[in-house]
């Protein structure tokens, strides 16, 4: 087995095994390296790269879509390029192209900032027009007037163009908590992203969302994505709870989804019971009391590390394949210290 080195414009190199006589594009794709390509027959020139070292041949019987000058410069089409031994190819794009994420750093602007409940605020940003994301992903932002960077999941739908909504738990004394009370429309705000691989499962069948507190944020656009994606609708369960009734937020938005999705079973609860609360009680995991439902569904959990761990443990006890669980956990903003980042588990 020979060795294929792929060099990208950002300096990164990726390596894949390749058998002598094999096609470079095939070897890269087989190794999970998603090189740019389309026709795979030498016509479209999407997979162009430059051979910088190693013996190669081209697939016989094809006229690659390359100019003579390009061929002289070492340009080849990866779909028609055969390795005769170790080979190194330079690609005209960054290694990030081969990944799902295409994060960038952009300048945004505050459109709106308002409290949604006793502890949760909504911050609405106008992102740079180039900013795009997948439901479930998060962004980092620099708290205006400070050096602090914070990470928040995007709580609005992808089609809400020109508008990104974040739901933020306000920690008194924290950099963001302090900013929320002085935020004004028009404030400049630096944004990086999108990040994260907490994405909607593509499995066809029932879906369960378990959201603790502001963990509801990324679930909302995922719910819209699920509603609007093709194919037959399947049952959806959304369990959401906060510690107290006065912390609950965006219940009107949830009720609208419940209205639009006859197959949505919405379960809202509070974990610290108070006498006046007449609804469900318990953390969001406890609201999913139907174990056969968990066993049959694609599970998405977002909230504290404790909630994510408890969900995984409960699923393990039920012998549920861990691959069916997608999770995102928030580490709360610690007073003036650290840069909390959502951690995505595979």
């Amino acid at each position: 087995m020979a060795r294929l080195d792929l060099r990208f414009t950002d300096g990164a190199t990726m390596t894949a095994p390749i058998a002598v006589g094999d096609v470079v594009l095939d070897a890269a794709l087989a190794a999970g390296i998603n090189l740019a390509h389309q026709c795979r027959s030498g016509s479209c020139a999407t997979c162009v790269g430059k051979v910088v070292s190693g013996e190669t041949e081209t697939v016989a019987g094809r006229a690659p879509a390359l100019l003579s000058s390009e061929i002289a410069a070492g340009m080849r089409l990866c779909c028609s390029l055969i390795a005769c031994g170790d080979v190194t190819v330079e690609l005209p794009y960054a290694s990030t192209f081969t990944l799902a994420d295409q994060a960038s750093s952009t300048a945004g602007e505050v459109l709106e900032c308002l409290p949604l409940s006793a502890s949760v605020w909504k911050l609405v940003l106008k992102p740079d027009p180039s900013f795009d994301f997948q439901p479930g992903q998060y962004l980092r932002l620099q708290v205006p007037g400070t050096d602090a960077w914070r990470s928040y999941s995007i709580a609005s739908s992808r089609d809400a163009t020109g508008r990104i909504e974040l739901v933020i738990k306000k920690h008194p004394g924290g950099a963001m908590g302090e900013y929320l009370t002085r935020a004004r429309p028009g404030d400049a705000i630096d944004v990086e992203g999108p990040f994260g691989a907490f994405l909607l499962s593509q499995a066809k069948g029932p879906t369960v969302f378990i959201a603790g507190g502001t963990g509801l944020g990324p679930i909302l656009p995922m719910l819209d994505q699920l509603r609007l994606r093709g194919g037959r609708a399947h049952p959806v369960t959304l369990a959401f709870s906060c510690s107290q009734a006065e912390d609950l937020f965006l219940l009107d938005e949830l009720e609208l989804r419940e209205y639009w999705m006859p197959l949505l079973d919405l379960r809202v609860g509070v974990s610290r019971s108070t006498a006046e609360w007449e609804g469900l009680r318990g953390n969001p995991l406890a609201l999913v009391d139907d174990e056969s439902l968990l066993a049959a569904a694609a599970i998405h959990v977002c909230g504290s590390p404790g909630l994510v761990e408890a969900t995984r443990q409960r699923c393990a006890r039920l012998a549920i394949d861990p691959a069916k669980i997608r999770s995102e956990q928030f580490i709360p903003e610690v007073t003036l210290a650290g840069h909390p980042t959502p951690e995505t588990m595979p």
Partner: peptide, 20 residues
């Protein structure tokens, strides 16, 4: 219609034969 549709068609201003 909002509650009981089997899907909302996305705008097809530039339709593509591509299958997802």
């Amino acid at each position: 219609v909002s509650r009981h549709n089997r899907g909302i068609q996305t705008p097809q201003n530039h339709p593509s034969p591509r299958l997802d």
